[in-house]
Write a protein that binds this DNA or RNA. Structure first.
Lengths: 194, 194
DNA sequence: GATAAAAGTCACCAATCGTTGACAAACGGA
DNA sequence: TCCGTTTGTCAACGATTGGTGACTTTTATC
């Protein structure tokens, strides 16, 4: 045990990184069940036993692989007139920016059959869209409005990164912002209650 | 082999039905990988070997279990002014009506890691929302508009049936129609191209 | 009631899974 | 150079998977 405080680029950290990268790619492509520890080992050019030695179990490896991501600093002020556009902009940056890598695909592919991933996914929306939505309307129906927004965001990510529906993959960032932004805006300000 | 033309409630058909029902429930709850043939047998109170005898393989069983569904007769005339509401109405009926059972959940849970399910899902949207959308605007960007609509519909189903996001589960049909309808309408008529 | 087909049971195979422990090689400080 | 720690390899475990085939029981027809 090296405890390894502060900095030490010590040999093993590189291997650890390689394993994590391999795991991220495979989890993103095949989901939790579809990616075996042996596959991860092969992809990282290392014995499968090492995968377990570095991370203690497959679940722990998945947990590490899935917490890359996704959290721009909370916005200080939210302009109620542009909250929809702000939201879709933020998420696109996080999902396709270099920081999170395939992080979103990892969760999406596994959420359907892995409770840990599903819970993580619920947390993301609870922590990242609910507060924003709550800041631009009465708190009473903030949950409902946040739910509607989450459904659109998750559906977009699902079509684009998992199902790979061609016309959705083909959309540019600008097109997405121009089209989805107003829809989210409508949900956020909640102009129904007819 | 009984070929069994026309009607014969012959003993075996009942078992066949029980197996299919059990398979549908388990696939809907745990996805393709998560539901084993042994589980299906146990749930149907029958030996796992029988599951294979009735359906030749797990893939074939899944294929049977997944083709319950979902196809109201194609609408003859589509009123461009209410196409959004029409679409969300239709899908809610199919998804939660008695005919399809847990059919949508089966596909949703498996689409992430099973290519057959993913393809089936793409077909559904290609066959059911594209034509409708194409009928109410220029065909040039019908794919894009249909893609946006699909993303919202799929996200709604995902949040409601798989992720079970509480505020989305709590939505009534009327609330969904009132909120999602206009969003789909906007996508369908495509008022952007700024 | 005999008999053939249908319906159901049981034991088992080969493959794959996550995980473990015993052991060999590489490395670094003394 | 010696030696202990780190890094890695290898073979194997028990469990579970989809699938098979030999077998027995039920059912229906004559």
């Amino acid at each position: 045990m090296s405890t390894n405080h502060s900095k030490k680029p010590s040999k093993s950290d590189r291997t650890r990184g390689q394993i994590l990268d391999a795991a991220r790619d495979l989890f993103a492509e095949h989901g939790y069940d579809g990616a075996s520890i042996r596959d991860v080992g092969t992809r990282a050019s290392i014995d499968p036993a090492m995968v377990i030695r570095y991370f203690r179990s497959k679940d722990e490896l998945f947990a590490r692989a899935a917490l890359v991501d996704l959290q721009l600093p909370a916005l200080r002020v939210i302009d109620p007139a542009t909250v929809g556009e702000t939201l879709i902009r933020r998420f696109l940056e996080v999902w396709e920016g270099p920081a999170s890598g395939p992080g979103m695909a990892i969760l999406l592919r596994s959420a359907a059959s892995n409770e840990f991933a599903a819970e993580k996914m619920r947390e993301i929306f609870a922590d990242q869209v609910r507060p924003v939505v709550a800041a631009v309307g009465d708190l009473a129906d903030a949950g409902r409005r946040a739910g509607l927004i989450s459904s659109q965001l998750l559906g977009l990510a699902m079509c684009r990164y998992v199902l790979r529906l061609p016309p959705v993959v083909a959309l540019s960032h600008d097109e997405i912002i121009r089209n989805v932004g107003p829809a989210l805006q409508r949900y956020a300000t909640g102009e129904d209650t007819a």
